[in-house]
Simulated scan of single mutants.
Amino acid sequence: MYRAEKRGGINGLVVSHSAVDMFSMTIIENSRHRDGSIYRNKAFEGHFCITNRDETRLEPMMFSEPTDCRPSWETCSMHSACAMMQIFSLKLAKIPIDNDCIQLYGYIAVRDDLDKLLNYVVNYSRDNPIIMQQGDLIEMTGPKRGISMCCSVLLEFDMRIKKGEQERDDLQLIDGAIDYIGLITATFPFTKRINGDCGAVDITLARVYWAVEATIQVIISDVQSGFNLYLSSLCFVSDVWKEIQLFNGPIGESCGLRRYVVAVSLDTWMHLKLKVGQKGSNHYVERYCSFKAINHGCSSQQILGELASISMKVTWSTLLD
């Protein structure tokens, strides 16, 4: 691992590689969704209600600006940071050998102690699968809010490879559930493999100690011509910088990107990394914007470029509000 100063600037910053341990994660016995065994498994009774398939209703706690009669949330001492899970990446590690590209769909979600409902990290329908090759990162569509790790976190997954007109012809990539126990989940980023019937997914995550939610909102305006945009978040976790890919794709007109929620250790810096390049060109302009993690509050920064104007707003909140 490469180390960097906790409060250091961007110059010379080197992002660490995760500790890689390719031993497979232990999938809970009788936790498959497709054969219904997970719904009959009594091991889940009393803690997680697996039969409840509702999505979490909780949102990040995004407060309005302070007024004369209400103190600034930035000085709030009532609400504190807590342990949170951060999933840094999901990689399509293995697919059937006779496939160069696949159509992937399904979901990966977590349940925590806040409401025990599904908080989707990945969610793609069969009608709108993603085209992928072995080794590609699976673009995350969530989480909707931060993931509490004060107690156990259940990771549920059911992902399939679309093969034909009928769902019965599809291949099962991974299916099941894994339990992460809060106190024994590593606080440094680590990678494990989830093996399935027709492939495998590598998941990189960590338990972030004393963390707050960073809700990232990006608005792109004044687009002069189409361009490619790469957006990621760099967070300081257990003395290393770790990168989370948020967006990687073309921009053709003024728009707002989806909202991103990232766990960041209190009083550390989060850097947003942007790479902008014209379509058809291998040349990218790279820029960074830095935000310090606090209990509550928000801050904004704007990048004015030749191709577009990019506005970034980060709102800070705690899970225990």
Score class of each variant (00 low, 15 high):
Cys255Glu: 11
Gln245Arg: 06
Cys255Gly: 12
Gly256Asp: 10
Ile244Met: 08
Val237Met: 08
Asp222Ala: 07
Ser233Phe: 06
Lys242Asp: 02
Ile251Thr: 07
Leu234Trp: 09
Val240Pro: 04
Gly252Phe: 15
Ile219Tyr: 02
Ser225Met: 06
Ser232Val: 02
Ser238Gln: 11
Leu231Phe: 14
Gly226Leu: 02
Lys242Trp: 04
Asp222Arg: 08
Phe236Asp: 04
Gly249Glu: 08
Ile244Arg: 02
Ile220Val: 13
Ser225Thr: 08
Asn228Leu: 04
Arg259Leu: 07
Leu231Cys: 05
Gly256Met: 02
Leu257Val: 13
Val240Ile: 13
Lys242Cys: 05
Arg259Phe: 03
Ser225Asp: 01
Arg258Ile: 04
Lys242Thr: 08
Arg258Asn: 13
Glu243Val: 06
Arg258Pro: 07
Phe247Val: 02
Leu229Gln: 02
Leu229Met: 09
Ile244Asn: 00
Cys255Asp: 11
Cys255Phe: 07
Ser238Tyr: 11
Glu253Met: 13
Asn248Met: 08
Ile251Glu: 00
Val237Cys: 11
Gly249Tyr: 06
Ser232Cys: 06
Val237Asp: 02
Trp241His: 07
Tyr230Val: 07
Lys242Ala: 00
Gly249Met: 10
Pro250Gly: 10
Tyr230Met: 03
Cys255Leu: 15
Glu253Cys: 15
Gln245Asp: 09
Val237Gln: 10
Cys235Ala: 12
Ile244Thr: 12
Pro250Lys: 14
Val223Leu: 10
Gln224Asp: 14
Ser254Gly: 15
Ser238Val: 02
Ser254Glu: 15
Leu257Gln: 04
Asp239Val: 08
Ser238Leu: 11
Gly256Pro: 00
Gly249Leu: 05
Val237Ala: 00
Leu229Arg: 03
Asn228Met: 06
Ser221Thr: 05
Tyr230Gln: 10
Ser233Gln: 01
Val223Glu: 09
Lys242Leu: 10
Val237Asn: 03
Ile220Tyr: 05
Ser238Gly: 04
Gly249Val: 10
Tyr230Pro: 00
Ser254Thr: 12
